[in-house]
């Protein structure tokens, strides 16, 4: 497979602030590549540069062989963009929105009408196509937002956190749509801060934090970086000091690393069963009541924790 996207040392500064610090990666044709990182990591800025919206401070990127800085119009013909926030005309109907955006992608006449009908079918809004978007639920609006990005059958689709703030049912529908598009041959660059989505969808994942791409590879390759470690997640009471417990657990034999988040303490260790007794004892010594314990196999959350010392949701 050849690369549809090649990014080399992409940098974006806003004054003194460095939003993206020399990011490099490639995406092969036909794959789903996820950029996984917390809010403010630089995911949207990266997509904005690749989609020709922002000009990079330095570095280079090509899409289907076209430079994003020197040949923006050629790049725009190849890509589709589904922005993080809804970008629709709410006083127009779904059909009117799709027709307008199709026209902006040079579709017209019967081809446009047929394609709009296809997309409406694809996003499951054929029945409500003639209702104004402002009357839709959040999930339905998200689906129209995605539909706009699909109209011209782009080779490479950028999806910037398309599931933020929607109900589980709509999220499931969107994830299924992403998989279906990929099966049809579309290449996708998907950004998210939800580890589960990256794990479910991606052929490869790039982990981004503070504007730097700190790891890249398949899920297996990435989890291998933290060895065969497991993660013990301790759920503690609302009034318990999870920070103090994490600090104490870092001294327990067999614990690689312990980090506290909201009423949870994540403990990375080679074998959860080996450290379980010591962990419970430490909690009891500090008067902290453990409400429940989860044992997780190595995952991207653990990788992020391992690489940054912070949980993804921090």
């Amino acid at each position: 497979m050849s690369n549809i996207l090649e990014v080399k040392n992409l940098v974006k500064h806003y004054g003194d602030f460095q939003a993206v610090k020399g990011v490099s990666f490639n995406i092969e044709e036909g794959e789903i590549f996820s950029l996984l990182g917390p809010n403010g990591a630089g995911k949207t800025t990266t997509i904005s540069m690749l989609s020709t919206l922002y000009t990079p401070t330095s570095g280079a990127a090509t899409i289907s062989g076209h430079s994003v800085t020197r040949e923006p119009m050629a790049v725009r013909q190849v890509i589709g963009v589904v922005p993080q926030d809804l970008a629709l005309y709410e006083d127009l109907t779904a059909r009117e929105n799709l027709i307008f955006w199709g026209q902006m992608y040079d579709l017209s006449g019967k081809a446009l009408t047929a394609r709009v009908d296809e997309v409406l079918e694809q996003i499951g809004l054929t029945d409500k196509a003639n209702n104004r978007v402002k009357t839709y639920s959040g999930g339905m609006k998200r689906r129209v937002n995605i539909g706009v990005g699909l109209l011209h059958k782009p080779k490479l689709l950028f999806m910037d956190e398309p599931t933020v703030g929607i109900d589980p049912q709509s999220r499931r529908a969107i994830l299924d749509t992403v998989k279906a598009l990929n099966k049809q041959g579309m290449t996708l660059l998907y950004t998210t801060h939800y580890m589960e989505e990256a794990e479910e969808l991606s052929d490869r994942v790039g982990i981004i934090d503070h504007g730097e791409l700190i790891a890249i590879g398949t899920q297996k390759e990435l989890t291998h970086q933290v060895g065969e470690s497991e993660t013990l997640v301790l759920h503690v009471g609302e009034n318990d000091d999870s920070e103090a417990l994490a600090l104490a657990l870092n001294g327990v034999a067999g614990v690689i690393k312990a980090e506290a988040t909201d009423h949870e303490v994540s403990v990375i260790c080679p074998e959860a069963e080996d450290v379980l007794a010591g962990v419970v004892t430490k909690a009891n010594e500090r008067g902290i009541k453990i409400r429940s314990i989860d044992i997780r196999e190595p995952n991207l959350e653990a990788v992020f924790l391992h690489l940054t010392g912070r949980a993804l949701r921090d």
């Binding site: 989609s51 020709t52 919206l53 725009r76 955006w101 902006m104 992608y105």
Partner: peptide, 14 residues
């Protein structure tokens, strides 16, 4: 503000 202008700017429209 509502994002439609950036969306127009990433379409093949000058």
């Amino acid at each position: 503000t509502q994002g439609t202008l950036p969306r127009l700017l990433v379409s093949p429209t000058s």
